[in-house]
Design a protein around this nucleic acid. Structure first.
Lengths: 226, 226
DNA sequence: CACTGTGAATACCTTCACAGCA
DNA sequence: TGCTGTGAAGGTATTCACAGTG
């Protein structure tokens, strides 16, 4: 699928990708608990994140075994361990490509800061938008990204352009030494190996919901023979 | 996880959930091909969607067998079959809760219309926003949702509020006979059985990307013993 | 002949069950 | 006693391989 190969836990064994994808949720839950010396059990963490306690335990076991039997996990330690495993040791600067409605909304999204990210660059192709100030950030021109991104140490790009502009945006991003892309445009990006792309497809999410709705209502079984 | 139980294909066998979640992507790909009488093979469709041809074939086989051996699938027919299976037979009205930056961006997102959805309602709790016009739509008050949603036949809600407001928004949505929720707030919603929630967690997506970045760079193996 | 559709094999993830430890 | 950590079992999705067919 993506060019991402294997990921290994502390002993060289591979860690399941679904597990990696759940770690941020644990982190978020731990942050709501606070910074105190409290303990948390796998069952509690599961309740907080909507995951079974078994999965929580196994996921965490991939990072090492620093829980205390009979007690639980130290909240602070666990946070640190997960953050370290995810590479969340410092503020990550990101670039948002596309200063339309979505781009502006993302630039102002407080959750990003809380999760350790900072919108360092906001670029667009439209001359009418370039130079305007969004959330204290001056919109730069897409063409300047290859110069600006390395300067700002940006390796992660968020594509919030129109579908038509997405592929060009991605190409420029790659030329800017950006190797991780979060794509909001409903377009499949074909990029060189080594570039990791994740896509958020709003329409697809809604279609999945609509499907559940449909089925719940006893939707037409296509070609039903019974 | 969610309260969604089983989903069945034409013969009563269960269809894998991952398969259901890929169907919208196929649909989108087919739409880019066009409405002509063209044929498409599982390999092509796989290329277009980033899925292996084997998976494409098996996924489609759950909907019935209307491909032509030696030739491929009729694009029009396939589109119809998938759309029908997903219940996408008519325009689905949706409500967006939260008229902040994100809510406004979503309200103006053209991809929604293309996928068969229509933003019928846009509501907010903030009196300063209520009454304003966004994309030709008058922002209504959250408190009016229980009256407006059934009127507009809205069953799907998108939560684009602040994290603090998300739970209340969800409760009001449920009281409005909305049974499917797409949640953009970084909060776990605890709702009655029968309500399907999907969440888009931007921060989590970025954290996953950051993880890949980290690993790609040979990130610190936590507690490595070798 | 090329491509679908599907039984069988494989790989993967989750769940169970319990030993091990504070 | 209570909860972690993990081998083993179970279940589910993917991949293989090929028979079937326009």
């Amino acid at each position: 699928m993506t060019s991402v190969k294997d990921h290994h836990d502390r002993e060289g064994a591979t860690i399941p990708l679904p597990a990696v994808h759940r770690l941020p949720a644990y982190l978020r839950a731990l942050e709501t608990i606070g910074l105190t010396n409290k303990m948390v059990s796998s069952a509690e963490l599961g309740l907080l994140t909507g995951v079974s306690e078994h999965i929580v335990r196994r996921d965490l076991s991939h990072l090492g075994s620093f829980g205390m039997r009979g007690i639980g996990y130290k909240v602070d330690l666990l946070r640190f361990q997960i953050a370290q495993f995810l590479g969340r040791t410092r503020i990550q600067p990101i670039a948002i490509i596309g200063a339309g409605n979505l781009g502006k909304a993302l630039a102002g999204y407080a959750g990003l800061r809380d999760a350790g990210f900072k919108v360092a660059l906001l670029v667009d192709k439209d001359p009418a938008k370039v130079g305007s100030i969004v959330r204290g950030l001056r919109v730069a021109h897409l063409a300047d990204l290859p110069r600006l991104a390395p300067q700002a140490d940006v390796r992660i790009g968020v594509i919030a352009t129109s579908p038509e502009g997405a592929m060009e945006a991605a190409d420029v991003a790659v030329a800017s030494e950006i190797t991780s892309i979060l794509n909001f445009a409903p377009v499949r990006l074909v990029l060189p190996d080594g570039v990791v792309v994740r896509r958020i497809d709003l329409a697809a999410e809604l279609e999945i919901l609509a499907f559940y709705l449909w089925r719940e209502a006893g939707g037409l079984l296509p070609g039903s023979r019974a």
